[in-house]
Design a protein around this nucleic acid. Structure first.
Length: 301
DNA sequence: AGGGACCCGAGTTGCACAAA
DNA sequence: TTTGTGCAACTCGGGTCCCT
């Protein structure tokens, strides 16, 4: 547990808050993912070519790929899970037919999925073959939905996205992440999509205010999440969870410092709010550990 | 032809649930 | 507990149909 001695990677994400290079505050970005399904292999290739973290594109678990396959197979039939253990899941396929204005249902077959290998078996060989083909396609294909989440995960792990629109889809990215945005742009273009970048210069009252509000709103959201999570801690909360909460508050503090120039007067509000979150965590830890609050060490705020 | 209403599909998000 | 995924809901844009 000597992590605290290591320099935190977050420092390099957010800078030291003392200056912005040039007069660029950051960029507004928005992306569009191609409609056609992209193979998992192509995603990995694209991530590697853009020097991005390949861990964000994991393989689908067989059960999830099978669920996707079922959605392709369920026209004219109903598919229901009937049993599950550690190794297998069994499904019943029931054919639905509209006969004379009424729906009739006919048992088709049982189908068994091995949760680890993805092997599919059924007494109905035709159905088994159909399910295997669709399952194989779903194991490999990634939808636009998958890729959007992947891009968001990349930013979550390596930079920051501040939503500037309640419905999402358009984000402000601080200037310090320009190089990372360029990598993501290269990745999105490699897989056939597009990523638009609009630089925001410092100095215009509207631009400065919009950036300040976006960053402050995003950071306040993170603090609110901390508060909500800490409030739920109970006697069954494990020590490592408490330490993770500590770490999250520390990272948020660094972000507030690092993005200080964007925040201006809102910085003190955020610091006060984070202080509250920190005190709440301290009191919860004190209660759960059974030690006086002042003895609960928090190198936070 | 132009405009409005409606429908449909794609993209995104929040929530719930299962696996690790 | 955290992380990843599916589902449902929502928004938006494009297409179609109907009315003026």
């Amino acid at each position: 547990m000597n992590e605290s001695k290591k320099p935190s990677p977050i420092q390099s994400w957010v800078g030291d808050g003392s200056k912005l290079s040039g007069k660029i505050l950051g960029e507004i970005i928005t992306w569009k993912i191609p409609r056609v399904a992209i193979s998992h292999a192509d995603l990995i290739t694209g991530l590697m070519a853009s020097h991005l973290d390949c861990d964000v594109a994991r393989e689908l678990a067989p059960r999830n790929a099978f669920a996707r396959a079922c959605s392709k197979l369920d026209s004219e039939r109903i598919i229901r899970k009937i049993a599950e253990d550690n190794a297998n899941i069994s499904f019943q396929f029931t054919r639905e037919a509209n006969e004379g204005g009424k729906f009739h249902y006919y048992f088709e077959s049982l189908l068994f999925l091995d949760k680890h290998s993805g092997n599919i078996t059924s007494e109905n060989l035709e159905l088994e073959q159909l399910a295997k083909e669709e399952f194989g396609r779903c194991m490999e294909a990634r939808t636009a939905n998958d890729v959007t989440r992947l891009v968001q995960r990349l930013f979550e792990r390596h930079a920051d996205l501040f939503s500037i629109r309640d419905q999402g889809g358009v984000y402000f990215v601080p200037e310090v992440h320009q190089d990372f945005v360029a990598k993501v742009e290269s990745f999105v273009r490699n897989i056939g999509g597009s990523l638009q970048r609009f630089s925001i210069s410092a100095g215009s009252p509207q631009g400065d205010r919009a950036v300040q509000e976006a960053v402050a709103h995003g950071l306040q959201g993170i603090i609110d999440e901390h508060m909500e999570a800490v409030a739920k801690f109970g006697e069954d909360t494990r020590p490592d969870t408490l330490h993770r909460a500590e770490e999250k508050i520390r990272i948020t503090k660094l972000k507030i410092e690092g993005y200080g120039l964007y925040l201006d007067k809102k910085r003190s509000d955020l610091e006060a709010s984070l202080q509250q979150a920190s005190e709440l965590l301290r009191s919860r830890m004190s209660f759960l550990i059974g030690a006086p609050s002042e003895e609960v060490e928090l190198a936070l705020v």
